[in-house]
């Protein structure tokens, strides 16, 4: 190996990057959610476009095409989520009177505008989820290329909103405030690019049990954690655990976070509900059971990501 391989230029106290400072849970200022809520739940529903001909650059997005072209099998299995599965999730949310955050690929907004309108009309939040699963942000892109990707994505949403018949976006309300990167991958410039486009929170980083303010060359951005381990994709799809177990693990998590409230203040859990996974007829019961559990448990409440961001900014 070259001798640089055994040189450690960032070897010093704290993080090895400048996005945020090192801080342990015991040193964290206590956060307090509105209404005395001890544990906030953020439900993130990704609406993804998986092209039939992905470039796979710089890597294949989880859930992307598998078999040789044309992989009609995986294309249609994923598309099922956007046509059918998402409506089961919407019904479950509606029945529980819960508002969620839908992280939407720009390509989905462009191709399926009625879906975006339905979600917005129901009072849910739309966050940008990049252009598509084949537009991954990574170090191989120039700043300009990343800026174009972010611009294109956000402009796409605003174009659609302009076509809505009645004003669904109130005066002064920004339609898109939040961002989830495709495959949650970023380059070192991504956060700055997002902040430059007035994105005020990002769902890619999960280094804490509360939102963490991050610093970029364009100003601060709030990092709102999203659990990889409890996401339905990881737990039910990749690891093939059961819906019963998914439910139980989330219940265990929320009760532990509630127990920690006295010591560490309000905390949160970000949960991913993937329409082509959780929206399956045989799985939707588990989401309904979770929502029921949340509704009947004191100190637990579902907030949209933007409501979490507002509360975090106020207390930062």
């Amino acid at each position: 190996m070259d001798k640089s391989y055994l040189e450690y230029p960032k070897r010093a106290y704290g993080q090895d990057h400048d996005f945020y400072e090192w801080r342990q849970v015991k040193d964290r200022p206590k956060l307090a959610w509105d209404n005395g809520v001890k544990v906030a739940i953020n439900l993130i529903i990704p609406l993804e476009f998986f092209p039939l001909n992905p470039s796979g650059v710089p890597f294949k997005h989880p859930g992307a095409m598998v078999t040789p072209y044309p992989d009609l099998r995986h294309f249609t299995v994923r598309d099922y989520g956007n046509r059918v599965g998402v409506f089961r999730i919407l019904d479950a949310l509606d029945d529980a009177d819960v508002k969620a955050t839908f992280a939407v690929n720009g390509e989905i907004a462009k191709r399926y505008p009625p879906l975006i309108e339905t979600i917005k009309s129901a009072g849910h939040e739309i966050a940008a989820h990049g252009l598509s699963t084949d537009h991954i942000h990574h170090e191989g892109l120039s700043f300009e290329e990343e800026q174009t990707l972010v611009n294109q994505t956000i402009d796409g949403f605003n174009d659609i909103a302009r076509g809505w018949p009645s004003p669904k976006v109130e005066d002064g309300e920004r339609l898109i405030r939040g961002w989830l990167s495709p495959a949650r991958n970023q380059s070192r410039q991504t956060l700055g690019c997002l902040r430059d486009e007035d994105i005020d929170y990002c769902l890619d980083w999960e280094m804490d049990q509360v939102p963490v303010q991050m610093e970029t060359f364009c100003g601060p951005i709030m990092g709102i954690p999203l659990s990889y381990e409890l996401s339905d994709f990881t737990l039910l799809h990749t690891r093939r655990q059961t819906e019963e177990s998914w439910l139980k693990q989330i219940q265990n998590a929320t009760s532990l976070l509630a127990e920690e409230h006295d010591r560490f203040g309000s905390q949160m859990l970000g949960l991913t509900l993937t329409p082509y996974i959780m929206g399956q007829p045989f799985r939707i019961w588990a989401l309904r059971a979770l929502l029921k559990h949340i509704k009947k448990t004191e100190g637990l409440e579902v907030f949209r990501a933007r409501d979490i961001a507002d509360q975090a900014w106020r207390q930062s």
Binding site: L52, N53, P70, F75, R83, V84, Y112, P114, L115, T118
Partner: peptide
Amino acid sequence: MHATPNLYDYWPYAG
């Protein structure tokens, strides 16, 4: 190669 099969149009389940 195409990004979509265009074998069907978007038809939301609701309604």
